[in-house]
């Protein structure tokens, strides 16, 4: 089974303060810490778990600049066999459609049985690349996958719906599955593990290598045109409600009501 897993390097957002840069289309990255997109982390683990149980190869692929090599290396440390970096100025500013276009072209070069992506990326949050990729490759897909079993050429998947509900379906391979967090317990990737794969080669491809022209990818090949990025005004934090129990609880209830929680 040849598995391809798509990964992305994104800023860690847990406590990051997002500052929009002067172009108003990007953010200041100086104080941010970058890591593999959390959903992709689960996708990589799932790919390697599959390889460990039924055999095959895992290829990690990422679209990004040179520093995206670190998330690919992380993938290699977990157990991926190959890594491909799609790095070209022509890819800059692409939306989910343009990104999927480049990924599809790269993936199509070799035979594959299963493509895993994260359900979404922490930065732009499109939740779109996986299913778009499937449509471009002409294969079925399932998104938000929280459970996966492979039986021959059929993947039995659990899709996460709302309010604790899941749907179970069979999807014929080859297919694209977008992986939701919690599907597995991603293993720890130690510095020693990264060092072990430090010398492994990462294939770097540009638009030309993929037979794509500059206006098919990047901002030019996008269906969405970014107009402006902005930070919504923050709410004030920390108010101790003063007064008697009657007064303080009344205040709290009106706050809850204003949020629509008492409807």
């Amino acid at each position: 089974m040849n598995i391809v897993v798509c990964v992305k390097r994104v800023p860690d957002l847990a406590e990051a303060e997002i500052v929009v840069d002067r172009s108003e289309k990007g953010i200041e990255t100086e104080d941010l810490v970058f890591d593999i997109n959390e959903w992709d982390n689960y996708a990589v683990e799932e790919a390697v778990l599959l390889k460990e149980s039924i055999g095959g190869t895992v290829t990690a692929i990422s679209l990004g600049e040179e520093d995206s090599e670190e998330v690919l290396r992380r993938g290699l440390a977990v157990g991926a066999d190959n890594a491909i970096l799609l790095n070209d100025r022509a890819f800059d500013g692409g939306d989910a459609f343009a990104t999927a276009k480049a990924l599809a072209a790269a993936i199509e070069r070799n035979p594959f049985d299963l493509i895993l992506t994260g359900a979404q990326a922490a930065d732009d949050g499109y939740a779109q690349v996986g299913a778009t990729l499937a449509e471009m490759l002409g294969i079925p897909h399932a998104t938000l996958v929280t459970g996966l079993e492979i039986d021959g050429n059929v993947a039995r998947v659990h899709r996460e719906l709302e309010a604790g509900l899941e749907e179970i379906l069979d999807v014929r391979l080859p297919a694209v599955l977008t992986i939701q967090t919690g599907i597995n317990e991603p293993r720890y990737v130690s510095i020693a593990g990264i060092r072990r794969v430090a010398r492994r080669e990462i294939e770097v491809l540009g638009a030309k290598d993929l037979g794509l022209s500059g206006d098919e990818v990047g901002a030019a090949g996008s269906r969405l045109e970014m107009q402006r990025l902005f930070v919504p005004p923050a709410t004030q934090k920390g108010e101790i409600l003063e007064g008697s129990v009657d007064v303080t609880t009344e205040k709290l209830v009106s706050i809850f009501a204003s949020k629509g929680w008492l409807a």
């Binding site: 890591d35 440390a77 977990v78 317990e185 991603p186 293993r187 720890y188 990737v189 130690s190 020693a192 593990g193 072990r196």
Partner: peptide
């Protein structure tokens, strides 16, 4: 076990990350 990664308890894994 750290080098192999599989058997690291999740809370410890997350803290180390």
């Amino acid at each position: 076990m750290m080098a192999e990664g599989r058997k690291v308890p999740p809370t410890i894994r997350d803290m180390l990350r």
